[in-house]
Design a protein around this nucleic acid. Sequence first.
DNA 1: TTGAAAGCGCTAACAT
DNA 2: ATGTTAGCGCTTTCAA
Lengths: 339, 339
Amino acid sequence: MSRKDRGLRGLETAAVTLQDVSLEAGVGASTVSRVVRKKGSVSPPTRDRVMAAIQKLGYVPNRLAGGLASAGSNLVGIVIPSLHNVVFPDLLQGVTRQLDQTGHQAVIAVTDYSKEREEALIASMLAWRPAALMVVGLDHTPGTRRMLAASHIRIAELLDLDGEGIDIVIGFSHAQAGRESARHLLSRGYRRIAFIGRDFANDTRSGKRCEGFRSVLRAEGLDFVAIEQLEGESSTEAGRAAAGRLIERHPSIDAFFCSNDDYAVGALFHCMAKGIAVPGRLGIMGCNGLDIGRSAPLPLTTLLTPRVEVGEMAARLVFAQGPAQRVAVGFTLVPGATA
Amino acid sequence: MSRKDRGLRGLETAAVTLQDVSLEAGVGASTVSRVVRKKGSVSPPTRDRVMAAIQKLGYVPNRLAGGLASAGSNLVGIVIPSLHNVVFPDLLQGVTRQLDQTGHQAVIAVTDYSKEREEALIASMLAWRPAALMVVGLDHTPGTRRMLAASHIRIAELLDLDGEGIDIVIGFSHAQAGRESARHLLSRGYRRIAFIGRDFANDTRSGKRCEGFRSVLRAEGLDFVAIEQLEGESSTEAGRAAAGRLIERHPSIDAFFCSNDDYAVGALFHCMAKGIAVPGRLGIMGCNGLDIGRSAPLPLTTLLTPRVEVGEMAARLVFAQGPAQRVAVGFTLVPGATA
DNA sequence: TTGAAAGCGCTAACAT
DNA sequence: ATGTTAGCGCTTTCAA
């Protein structure tokens, strides 16, 4: 028996340890460790014996022990608001694609747009001593900011630029996105515009786009005809319903500015079903250029945001040496056929 | 100095340990441990002193150490093929909602539909000694099956029922789903049907639905007019393009059976744009009832699958005592307006 | 190139 | 109710 407490019966199949492998291979523990981590020099014959023992025993290294001993893990935490908005899967794809290159592993947590849940999840991630942590946006509870600042690991805050960051910030200005959207709709002659978006309390970036848009309207002596804040996961169904409600309450509306493409496609579906002419009678503009918007019967006018690239860049920068920094990425207004 | 090697300068801010807290609070280490884990009894005054010390020092427990000492973590691994198909975010939502109740934390990994990547990811997860592991489907590499069987933790295989499982299996038969879809389309009078789905090599469940459908066709002396296997993330755009190609090559096609709603909506968009009458000239049927299908101008005929529920059930069953088991969940054919 | 030994920070008996 | 003492399985000097 290789471990004292393994008992007399071969039945007690406790996990195979590095110790077991070293005994089987007739080498020291550190040699096995070197082989497993491909670090330090090991003679080819020794390596072969160790590999054979690993195979034979079906050894799986215990990273809890490894991380503890080496004071760190290959984990990278990434905390996002939702998985039901393609923006975030896209972001994750960029992150993991890049992380794979460096042998890191992403650990994903979802806040459901709750700042309190975000704080709890980040505390929980930090307990795993990740190599770096990524979060979405710049707006956090004071407790979250304190934890992140005190964590002694690289922190990347993604997809926003309106506010103070803690360490690395990669994103664009949602206020500016809102302003450009406003200028586009105004230039197309729309004047009685309504906003459809997530509730600002939880989705602050939605609120920033709304405010940016509004500032341009006000400069023209205008304002939103209505602002509809939706709770729950964004969806075409919710957008469709909201569009219906708004048109009923404010028949004079001549355009919708939607805080994402799901809502915008929903609004478009409402108009198609009701026979409302788009973009003639009513203009629709989305944000975050989703696949669905591009292939809709009427391609959606929207704002294309580079979230895969933001993810990749984040995964690169958190492991680059260097001071805190802000990286501004661009976005593109894509004129479709709906506004 | 609480730790020998902390050095002379207060600058060396190594992470605060439980030891530090116990010294600060003037109690033993295990007392702090009890307070942190809310386990065992601690007198209110002592608890307060410890809490104060934790606050003051900004202590974050190290779970690497905790897990190592207690031989196990509160992590639950969950390995899914993709995040770009709403089915999987839905599944995750069910899982995490339930896991939250029990203080467990989901660790998500994405295979991009590659069985080899799945094997590598599972090996990597197992190294973290998760409390349980969930995977999608029943088709894995021999290496994966071996690892899972040898892991000594509960394994749940989700969203499939056609094949042998390792431990817990929760899902429905994709072959049956295909057969019911076929009977529906045939009952509506469609005879020249084409299949649009992901490539079977990677998405075996797509293949099973196709084969199930086909078996019914053959019983009627029919077969698919064409089978289009798409690679890459499923999307409306891909579905739209595929529909266009198929109609061009096989003008006699009178219906599409799509392996998911994204493709089906894409096909619908193609028809709307080209003025092809749906469901008169062409029928369209999807699978996996997405939001987008319900709110489309023409509600999609589709198969509704209970993936949130499967996720919840999985998170419950992996922590229930009991033998291996198979749970069959139902699915519902939702007749929309497209077939 | 290899091995021995000392922890990493915590939990889990076991005392008290 | 609280403290003491062994480890958990690995990595990492440091010798050999």
